[in-house]
Structures are given as structure tokens and as C-alpha cells.
Computed example of a mutant assay.
Amino acid sequence: MSDDRRSVKTYVPAEQKERWQSHADDLGMSQSEFVRTMVQAGRRGFSIAESSDPTEPSSGESDPGGEDLETEVEAALADGPLSWEELVDAMVGDFEDQLEETLDALQERDRVRHRGREGGYTLTNE
């Protein structure tokens, strides 16, 4: 994994930031590490069914805190030690490919359009 890092900024309500900081403290993490980990965990927990229609979500097959994740962690560590960041990256999977396939399918069905002037992808009203 590269040590080349970039800053990402977001704005959240003060109460949410306080909850995140408290949770990060409870876990012995910095707030940056906590947010990065939670984003990756959220991305990992989102899956799309392996079907002919990639826009149909899976029906409860994802188990981000369960045995499937344990199996994947063990497989990632089978070749040797990984840092926290390397392990998180290994767990991310191919979410970006699934998202691209889903957007392509939605665009083919004219449910979503990419409109640069409007800031990106938008739903059609059809």
C-alpha cells in the first residue's frame, strides 16, 4: 500500500461529530481512522446480487460482521501480515466495478442519466 495520502473534508452536524469522536475514543482510534474505517465498512457491507440484473440488491446475503467476513479476513491474512490500512483495502472488494455495472444498466433502461451541468448522475422522471 502506498503512503501517498490525500485529505478529504466533509461537514456534519456538531452532534454527529461528537458521537463519532466519542466512538473513536472508545475504540482507541483517531477520528480520521474511525471515519475511514466506517466508510470502508459501509462500502463492504453493501452488495449487489450476482444476477442478470445488477440493479437488484441482494436479499440479506451480506453479513459484514459475521462469519463470511471472518473467512475473508483469514484468507487475506493467509499470505502474511497486513497493516490495518492494507487489511481494510483488501476487504473493500470490487464495489466500484459493481457500481459501474449498476449505473450502466440504469442508464440503458433510461432510469439514470449523467448530466455534468447538474453535478453528475441524476434520476430521470420516467
Results as ranks from 00 to 15, higher is better:
residue 126 E to Q: 08
residue 81 P to T: 14
residue 59 S to P: 13
residue 74 E to K: 05
residue 92 V to W: 05
residue 103 L to N: 03
residue 125 N to I: 05
residue 121 Y to H: 04
residue 100 E to Y: 14
residue 116 G to W: 03
residue 77 L to F: 10
residue 45 G to Q: 12
residue 110 D to T: 15
residue 93 G to I: 06
residue 29 M to K: 12
residue 119 G to Y: 07
residue 18 E to P: 03
residue 115 R to K: 13
residue 60 G to Q: 10
residue 18 E to W: 12
residue 53 D to L: 08
residue 23 H to Y: 04
residue 2 S to G: 14
residue 120 G to Q: 07
residue 104 D to L: 03
residue 57 P to L: 02
residue 51 S to L: 11
residue 30 S to W: 11
residue 67 E to R: 03
residue 122 T to M: 14
residue 38 M to P: 00
residue 2 S to W: 08
residue 37 T to Q: 03
residue 40 Q to F: 01
residue 34 F to C: 13
residue 3 D to P: 06
residue 104 D to E: 06
residue 81 P to S: 15
residue 10 T to G: 15
residue 42 G to C: 13
residue 89 D to G: 01
residue 94 D to E: 14
residue 119 G to I: 02
residue 91 M to R: 04
residue 109 R to G: 01
residue 46 F to E: 07
residue 116 G to I: 04
residue 33 E to D: 05
residue 72 E to P: 02
residue 60 G to M: 00
residue 92 V to D: 08
residue 112 V to Q: 11
residue 69 L to N: 10
residue 35 V to M: 07
residue 31 Q to A: 10
residue 99 L to R: 07
residue 124 T to S: 09
residue 41 A to Q: 07
residue 108 E to I: 14
residue 13 P to Q: 12
residue 81 P to I: 14
residue 118 E to K: 15
residue 3 D to C: 08
residue 86 E to R: 11
residue 105 A to M: 08
residue 5 R to K: 09
residue 16 Q to F: 13
residue 47 S to Q: 02
residue 67 E to F: 04
residue 71 T to K: 00
residue 61 E to H: 04
residue 93 G to P: 00
residue 47 S to F: 11
residue 77 L to S: 11
residue 61 E to F: 01
residue 26 D to M: 00
residue 76 A to V: 09
residue 25 D to C: 12
residue 83 S to I: 11
residue 12 V to A: 14
residue 65 G to Q: 04
residue 20 W to V: 01
residue 11 Y to K: 13
residue 74 E to A: 15
residue 87 L to F: 07
residue 38 M to H: 06
residue 1 M to N: 14
residue 18 E to Y: 02
residue 108 E to A: 15
residue 77 L to K: 07
residue 44 R to I: 00
residue 14 A to G: 00
residue 103 L to G: 03
residue 8 V to L: 10
residue 2 S to H: 14
residue 104 D to N: 06
residue 109 R to S: 05
residue 102 T to H: 03
residue 81 P to H: 00
residue 96 E to G: 06
residue 119 G to W: 08
residue 84 W to E: 09
residue 86 E to H: 08
residue 68 D to A: 06
residue 80 G to H: 03
residue 55 T to I: 02
residue 73 V to H: 11
residue 45 G to T: 00
residue 95 F to D: 01
residue 47 S to E: 04
residue 97 D to T: 07
residue 13 P to G: 10
residue 62 S to L: 02
residue 55 T to Q: 00
residue 78 A to Y: 04
residue 88 V to H: 08
residue 110 D to V: 07
residue 5 R to L: 15
residue 111 R to T: 02
residue 62 S to G: 04
residue 79 D to Y: 01
residue 41 A to N: 01
residue 79 D to Q: 10
residue 96 E to Q: 08
residue 86 E to F: 09
residue 40 Q to I: 09
residue 38 M to F: 02
residue 81 P to E: 09
residue 16 Q to D: 13
residue 11 Y to M: 11
residue 112 V to T: 12
residue 28 G to M: 02
residue 40 Q to K: 10
residue 38 M to Q: 13
residue 15 E to G: 07
residue 111 R to G: 06
residue 17 K to W: 03
residue 98 Q to I: 00
residue 126 E to G: 00
residue 85 E to P: 15
residue 85 E to W: 14
residue 60 G to T: 09
residue 81 P to C: 05
residue 66 G to T: 02
residue 40 Q to L: 15
residue 45 G to A: 11
residue 72 E to V: 05
residue 88 V to W: 11
residue 123 L to F: 04
residue 115 R to G: 00
residue 70 E to F: 13
residue 55 T to K: 05
residue 50 E to H: 10
residue 75 A to L: 13
residue 124 T to C: 14
residue 65 G to S: 15
residue 11 Y to L: 12
residue 30 S to L: 14
residue 23 H to K: 10
